[in-house]
Design a binder for these strands. Sequence first.
DNA 1: GAATATGCATAGCTGTGCTATATAATTGAC
DNA 2: GTCAATTATATAGCACAGCTATGCATATTC
Lengths: 172, 172
Amino acid sequence: MPETVVLDATRATTISQILVEVVSASNRLTRVAARRTGNTESPALLRTLSTLIASGPMRIGELAVESRVAQPTMTKLVRTLGEREWVRRIADTADARAWQIAVTKKGERALEEWRESMGAALLPVFADLSDEEADVLARAAAILHARIAGEIGSAASVTGPASSVVEEGAAR
Amino acid sequence: MPETVVLDATRATTISQILVEVVSASNRLTRVAARRTGNTESPALLRTLSTLIASGPMRIGELAVESRVAQPTMTKLVRTLGEREWVRRIADTADARAWQIAVTKKGERALEEWRESMGAALLPVFADLSDEEADVLARAAAILHARIAGEIGSAASVTGPASSVVEEGAAR
DNA sequence: GAATATGCATAGCTGTGCTATATAATTGAC
DNA sequence: GTCAATTATATAGCACAGCTATGCATATTC
């Protein structure tokens, strides 16, 4: 196995190029999806919801890290989500500065409806995928999800049990 | 092969779900990429550039369709691209209302640099992909690109030869 | 040549993202 | 136990990408 360094450099280049193609394809797919669904749904809100559903209630700061946005951005998103009653804020008994953010039933339904409408909107473009192509897409999504989930050292999902049930507005 | 209808419905559901997973993964990947690159580059500008490079000079309206944005959005993007000297506007001799938008060398370089920095930024997260995983991602990107390109009836790339070489600001 | 259609620009809004900074609570040092 | 430093969220204010509605100029059609 000679010239390992050269081989590795080549391989890194190849992987980089593939990643760029994936990002580029993602970028376009996002636009196609936005236009076909009529653009009424917000990716950021749904991303936040699905993070919460996947990992359970967590603090705003943790949510910001998981969702890859700055903390003030997440504060805004959580406010909007709260106004729609898709999440509720639960006081954190261990730290009066913090809140646990939890998805409501309504929020779960909203995400589910979004997934249905997104699937329906994109289906016509992809309906005649071969089984093999469909499999490739499914595996690619799984690979991306796994890598992205693993990208953060630890984060979240460690917070769960410490929260109380005091709703916002109640005496603290 | 009995119950074709039921089977097809099931298959449609499966494909829909896969597509939703792909969109969801894309959405997250976009955020990871934005954060890791330091977020200085704008996806919309680069999407426009790469469309122009792939399909050659075209009108603002065509570019809007290809890039899946509304026409006023594209007008703004083209203005920004022009200010950066990444594109130039060429008068369309066949129609005085229209412009042909063409990428400059500077624009090509900007896209190339973006691709390099994006690849470098994401590589650490994906460096230890197996050859097989890398292949799955590459094929998924190709499938998405092909479908998205095919989604529009015809559009663009039919416009090329009709344009002149009169630069903006020159007598029209 | 007047009416209609088309291509682009402008105005003005919303939402998502950012940084810098404020406020309040917690933690740590002494 | 109090004061300083740190931490969690909120607020302010900005930029940009997206949209719809609409205006303006040029083409096209009858």
